[in-house]
């Protein structure tokens, strides 16, 4: 491969470094001892972390976001797997139609989606309750979960399934011993990716919270509007660490190839 033009390369490096810069600024600000975010920092301290941990509202919001992300990830991955398996094995003809339906929320402006879902979830009596928020998250993350599972299932050679059938394996046995292990990276990508999106979702979620329940990103949003205390920098840093760890785990267990794979059908 020919080498890249040097000045273009330099520009690329500068722009690449600019991407995480605001996040590093937040992390830096979280260790600032002063009441304002200052430059140069007045002193280094952990006081904002102590303040964050002392306030039960933050811990509550964090735990709520965490368990809801886990539940969302597991349900959406199961739904996507069943769908992709059924479509590929029994109904390839409806594959493209179903795909359009599954991907359609992606082209739906988020603001409109929030208003649409708030009406529906209020009608179901789930406004301001965990099942309502999880339901909304399932709809939001479905396309991101379906795609990696569909791609990895499709790449499995159909002859393997036939061979298993011929050799007398039941469908369940073939699924358990052949399909699931071969689809492992797609399933793990779906779990982690949809979990991260649910953990960080704010635009739709903020319409659905109530006095009983709120999520971490929505609470950060509410607090920023109220007053920008450096305690937010400490909370944000914790949220960044969770996301960063999830991306690292994803890279370890499944690789990042799914993100840059171009799929003709998707």
């Amino acid at each position: 491969m020919p080498r890249m033009n040097r000045s273009l390369k330099l520009l690329g490096i500068i722009l690449l470094c600019a991407l995480p810069a605001p996040i590093f600024i937040v992390i830096g600000a979280s260790f600032n001892g002063g009441a304002y975010i200052q430059f140069p920092p007045e002193s280094v301290s952990l006081r904002w972390y102590l303040e964050a941990f002392a306030d039960p509202r933050w811990l509550d919001a964090f735990l709520t976001s965490f368990w809801m992300a886990a539940v969302t990830a597991i349900i959406t991955t199961a739904v996507s797997f069943l769908t992709a398996y059924y479509v590929l094995r029994y109904a390839p003809r409806i594959a493209s139609m179903l795909e359009i339906a599954i991907f359609s929320p992606l082209f739906f402006p988020h603001a409109a989606m929030g208003v649409a879902l708030v009406a529906l979830i209020a009608e179901l009596g789930l406004l301001g309750r965990a099942p309502g928020i999880i339901l909304a998250h399932l709809i939001v993350v479905l396309p991101f979960s379906y795609r990696p599972i569909y791609i990895s299932l499709r790449s499995i050679d159909p002859d393997l399934m036939r061979a298993a059938n011929v050799l007398g394996a039941s469908e369940w046995r073939a699924l358990k011993d052949i399909i699931l292990p071969m689809c492992r990276s797609g399933i793990l990508t779906s779990l982690l990716f949809s979990g991260i999106i649910s953990f960080d979702e704010v635009t739709v979620t903020m319409f659905l919270i109530g006095p009983e329940i709120t999520t971490l990103p929505v609470q950060i949003f509410t607090f920023i509007q109220d007053r920008a205390s450096p305690v937010l920098a400490a909370i944000s840093t914790i949220s960044v660490i969770v996301t960063f760890l999830a991306v690292l785990i994803l890279e370890r267990v499944a690789g990042l190839a799914f993100f840059v794979q171009r799929d003709s059908s998707a």
Partner: peptide, 11 residues
């Protein structure tokens, strides 16, 4: 993937 609010807060 970091939350939108956190990135906006950075700004």
């Amino acid at each position: 993937l970091v939350s939108l609010v956190v990135r906006t807060y950075g700004w």
